[in-house]
Design a protein around this nucleic acid. Structure first.
Lengths: 361, 361
DNA sequence: AGCAATTGTGATAACGTTATCAGAGTCGCT
DNA sequence: AGCGACTCTGATAACGTTATCACAATTGCT
């Protein structure tokens, strides 16, 4: 009480008082302050209160840099996303953070923006930060995979969402896009459609896209002809097929020029579907009478399109929760445990873009 | 060369070799390695190459925790957003990161999810991390403002985007929503509309919303009656007026029940507008013949709605760039400099939702 | 040749925290 | 009374890095 009245900008001049400042203030060892802050070890109740008071008065906040350095873990999980703009990313993050928050982890988000270079930079940043683990939801690329595997070899715990990464210690969470697309096609078939197109993929390199496989398999299983002329994707030079309204619009315009055009289309995702619907309307056709449309993802907007969009709902937040849970399990438990894979069911949401056809074959 | 063949998981057993490991490997002092890594001070070319080789071979990456701790700055800028789901956030982040990347800063994103509690938690996290500065783009709340001011008092450099914060050291970047809305209303008036509604705000508490003020002022300046019955917002109990398709849909449904309904509406933002359009169609009315609609923000989707949406474009990425530039200027220069404010112009994008009326007064 | 300036390298301490050990005091039990 | 167990507090060292000082070797200049 002889050095009175010091505000939070105390001893060390910086605006961040340290544990040492607190300790000096009340005349104890820094270690004692540390124990109070972390509620670890023995501290008498009287001391605890004295320290607490000083902590609040001086507005002390632990320096996570120093703490993480000493503890050799950061309590940080990196999240790598293709981009930030879409509802899928947002929902996924929500699910992940729900779990992390409860277990007092923090998350850092990095985005790829379609560039493998960006992806590596972001991963490197997370690695340099000594993130305790990462959740990866980017599109697969050769380079990207190589780099991820390298990080895994460096013992960085990892989980992937909605994609693959072939490594025995990388957990994996997905939704069953194959099944969702399969059901969507069966729904169209039940409505009487026979000639069903696919918008958002190039027939050549759609192999990795499970929702596209689901479309193909459903068509085959029902003895329907797969006509590559009504499977349209982004223009060749568009790079790594990244799907937006624009792609859907352009591709569908090409599709509509074909003589025997389909009576229904399945779109790679809802935004592609929205672009497609716009193209269909611009061509003077009605939805669903002249052409039915099915999307994929059930973004919030899908209920408000004109007409409201039939689409496949995938449990996005749940994928996030599961991925986070698996990852934390690995981080805090057996880091070498064999990978787990979780595949969640999708379900079809039927709206007005696929009403039963009135005058159809 | 007597302890041969060590892979990257070297001396200290962890998968992260340190500067000391490198130094030992080639028999020099850690300081020399540090100098090579940071390209600071004098190092002979021969030494530089020797160190570089070891760094690559052992896959060394500097520990940013230790580095930041020592340097007393993290090169991290925190970004606080209301949420991650919307295109505005995405564009803003893109603009910010463009600047940060070029100046070798990293950014961490925190989201509020409409909760002041979450907001404080995220801010605290950024503060604890010793972020060098933060950019805040959340909605204003009393509690939120108080906390932000407290952080500013603790000398955390700050810039706000699309909102206010009254402090002489907080820079501010906005787009002129007032002017954008004003132009939108004048556009409708020029098309012959006299009775123009507003969707997405409650007349009572719209005071803080500049785009709403622009609507009111434009109406007044053109001697048009402001009728509070055709100004509809989210239901009272909806909490902090957060606008989505759902709100727009519900509010517009209420609006459509009014006898003398407006011939045009201005929506608080594009998503509200999309909800509104859906409600209008559901009521069996045509857009724009029976009711014209103007949105705000020009989200990518606005070009693909049915009909394509007339809306006010705001330079979002540019706001991000400007905010980041101002903030870095403050961080690296005079931290006490008087605040700067930048107000960027908006412009109207005319599409089909407001075509010149055919049979109107 | 002589001396200052430049170049190259190393030793030391510190950033803020916490794991670990050590020691003193208290309590409970025989 | 004696002894082990528990409770409380402190001293020390370390996490991985870099700022600073120190010193030797080289260079340039008169």
């Amino acid at each position: 009480m002889n050095k009175p009245r010091k505000n939070q900008n105390s001893v060390n001049g910086s605006s961040h008082p340290t544990i040492v400042d607190i300790a000096r203030q009340i005349g104890v060892a820094p270690m004692t302050v540390s124990r109070v802050i972390n509620e670890s070890g023995y501290v008498s109740e009287a001391m605890r209160q004295r320290v607490q008071a000083a902590v609040t008065e001086m507005n002390y906040r632990p320096n996570v840099l120093a703490r993480s350095l000493k503890r050799q873990r950061t309590q940080v999980i990196g999240i790598l996303l293709p981009d930030i703009a879409n509802p899928f990313s947002a929902e996924l993050v929500r699910g992940i953070q729900e779990v992390l928050l409860a277990r007092s982890y923090t998350s850092f988000i990095g985005t790829t923006e379609r560039s493998t270079q960006r992806e590596q930079a972001e991963l490197r940043a997370l690695f340099d930060l000594r993130a305790d683990g990462i959740i990866v939801a980017t599109r697969e690329t050769k380079k990207g995979n190589d780099y991820l595997l390298k990080l895994t070899e460096n013992r960085l715990p990892m989980a992937v969402v909605g994609r693959t990464l072939n490594h025995p210690q990388v957990d994996r969470v997905t939704a069953d896009h194959w099944q969702g697309a399969y059901e969507a096609v069966e729904h169209l078939i039940a409505l009487g459609h026979r000639r069903i197109g696919y918008v958002g993929v190039q027939p050549i390199n759609g192999g990795g896209l499970r929702r596209y496989q689901g479309y193909l398999d459903a068509m085959r299983d029902h003895q329907l002809k797969i006509d590559e002329r009504i499977i349209v994707g982004p223009a060749e030079q568009a790079g790594p097929g990244y799907s937006t309204q624009d792609d859907g619009y352009a591709a569908t315009n090409r599709l509509l020029k074909i003589k025997q055009r389909p009576t229904a289309i399945v779109a790679r995702n809802d935004f592609t579907a929205i672009g497609a619907m716009c193209a269909i309307r611009d061509a003077g056709l009605r939805i669903p009478e002249d052409m039915a449309v099915v999307g994929f993802d059930n973004v919030p907007l899908a209920a408000y399109t004109a007409p409201p969009l039939t689409t496949v709902d995938q449990p996005t937040a749940e994928q996030g929760r599961q991925a986070a849970t698996l990852l934390l399990e690995r981080i805090e438990g057996d880091r070498a445990r064999e990978r787990r894979e979780i595949n969640l069911a999708c379900h079809l949401v039927i709206r007005a873009s696929t009403q039963p056809a009135t005058q159809r074959t």
